[in-house]
Simulated assay, not measured.
Amino acid sequence: MRGISSKELEELKSQGWSVSEDGKKIKKEYKLKDFKQSIDLLREIQPSADALDHHPDICVYYNRVIIELTTHDFGGLTDLDYQLAVKIDEIYKMLS
């Protein structure tokens, strides 16, 4: 595990991810058609999160899913956050 690079962080920001004030978390909101599609997104994310052994914090609001990523063991952002964020974006594009 390594810290996230500035290039990776800039790439995520260009894809709509925001960085917390302390720089230790990234966050993104996904808008979906309805509650079922929101849950479908979570179901698709779960195997990727398990494969990386890296799990996001998630809030579901009917047709919106808010995802936050950080690496608690590291105390901030790592390559695991980058990898999972990219995968989540791919999954969302596939569902929408």
Rank of each mutant, 00 (worst) to 15 (best):
L69Q: 00
T78S: 15
P56E: 09
L80P: 03
Y62D: 09
H55N: 08
H72M: 13
L84I: 11
Y92K: 10
I91Q: 04
I88A: 02
I88G: 01
L52S: 07
Y61C: 13
Y92G: 01
L84A: 08
L80A: 14
I91A: 02
L84S: 07
T78W: 06
R64S: 10
H72A: 14
Y92I: 00
R64N: 09
D79N: 15
D79G: 15
E68T: 12
T71V: 07
A51R: 12
D79Y: 14
I91M: 03
L84K: 07
N63G: 06
E90D: 08
I67Y: 00
Q83C: 13
D53L: 03
D50L: 10
C59G: 09
D79P: 10
A51T: 01
R64V: 09
D57N: 14
L52F: 07
D50N: 12
D57C: 10
V86A: 12
G76M: 07
L80G: 09
G75F: 08
I58Q: 09
K87L: 03
D89I: 01
K93W: 00
L52D: 04
Y61A: 14
L84C: 10
C59E: 15
I58D: 09
T71C: 03
D73T: 14
L77R: 03
L84T: 09
D89T: 02
L69Y: 01
E68I: 05
I88E: 01
G75T: 11
A49K: 05
L77I: 05
Y82L: 09
E90K: 11
H54S: 08
I91V: 06
H72T: 12
P56Y: 05
H72L: 14
H55D: 06
I58V: 15
V65K: 00
D57G: 13
L77Q: 04
E90M: 04
I58H: 11
P56F: 07
N63I: 03
A85S: 12
L52R: 11
V65I: 02
V60P: 02
T71A: 04
V60Y: 04
Q83H: 14
I67W: 00
A51M: 06
V65L: 01
E68A: 05
G75Q: 10
I91T: 02
C59W: 15
K93T: 01
H54E: 05
L84E: 04
D53W: 03
A51C: 02
E68G: 01
P56T: 14
E68R: 10
V60T: 14
H55L: 11
A49H: 06
N63E: 08
I88L: 02
H72C: 12
H54Q: 09
L77V: 03
I66Q: 05
D57I: 13
A51Q: 10
D57M: 13
D81A: 13
H55Q: 07
Q83D: 13
A49Y: 02
Q83T: 15
H55M: 11
V86G: 06
T70G: 04
I67V: 13
I58K: 12
D73K: 14
L52Y: 08
G75W: 08
